[in-house]
Amino acid sequence: MESAKGFKKFFNEKMVTLLVLLVIVVAAFTVLSKNGSYLHPANIRNIFSLMVVTSLLTLAVGCLMISGNIDLSTGANGTLCGILFALLLQGGVAWPVALIATLLIGMAIGAFNATLVNIVGFQPFIATMAVASVAKGLTYVANNAVAVPVKDPVITWIGTERFFNNLLPVTLIIAIVAFVFYTVLMGATEFGRSVYLIGGNREAARLSGIHPVKISYILFINSGMLSALAGILLAARLKSGTVTGVVNMQFSGMTAAMLGGVSFGGGSGGFGGVFIGMLIINGFNNGLTVLGVSSYWQTVASGVLLLFALTVDYLNMKRRGKRVSKRG
């Protein structure tokens, strides 16, 4: 049982490190912001209502990364879906129909990614980046780069309603439900285990009767669906489908997942850590806005944070890699 304890200890250590990082981020922005406005209820409300977008994109790319894959098109896919959703509503389509149709479009883009990666055999990095570029272009073409208003009362209610003293947005509930769902799915089911096994050793998993291609399709389609949902919910919150939408947010998702312990190499990382990673990224992005940092510098800062997460992951992999190769 000693090693079980050791494992728990390691897990806790990692969690503690993440929580400390979260506290540092919050403390730093509180001190730096004028009169501590970072922790002002109005801003906390803001943080909470933005969380759903980061959460969904983190979950989307997190599952794929565990399987040893990557999707860089989530931001562009979500943005395209956000504007298409707004256009459908504007065109008089009933909201449930528009919602389902848009989710299907997101999923179709995911399936296309999966085909490029699994059937054609392109590198996931390049393939999904190219798809992102196509989606981004289509976003501009869709309505000549003009924002499309969203007026449907049900949708705007979902996007903006808050319970409990204005603190608990409907979207936050969606984010939390999604996190719980994926945590259980990945941690306690046959499907989740298969994803980890494929990420750990694809050929061994295949020879043990697991279908790597099938699971890769499911994960890419899932990623497309979550991206579309993120775009829809942002449009609902802003009451408008815009060409900037959730664009470039795929990097926030990746950073959150990696901070949370999901490795680029695949096969490792749990969603408990990823949740905190997501809180850190979300708090970080909002903090920069509160401080009035220009969006150009925000991009720089996000890049630096991603580099930081990559470095941590690289050092971990190097340590592990060394141990793998010398095992005997």
Partner: peptide, 13 residues
């Protein structure tokens, strides 16, 4: 190593 084990998972997995 190549076709059998998932080295970073437990004996049980």
């Amino acid at each position: 190593k190549e076709q059998g084990l998932v080295l970073f998972r437990s004996v049980r997995d």
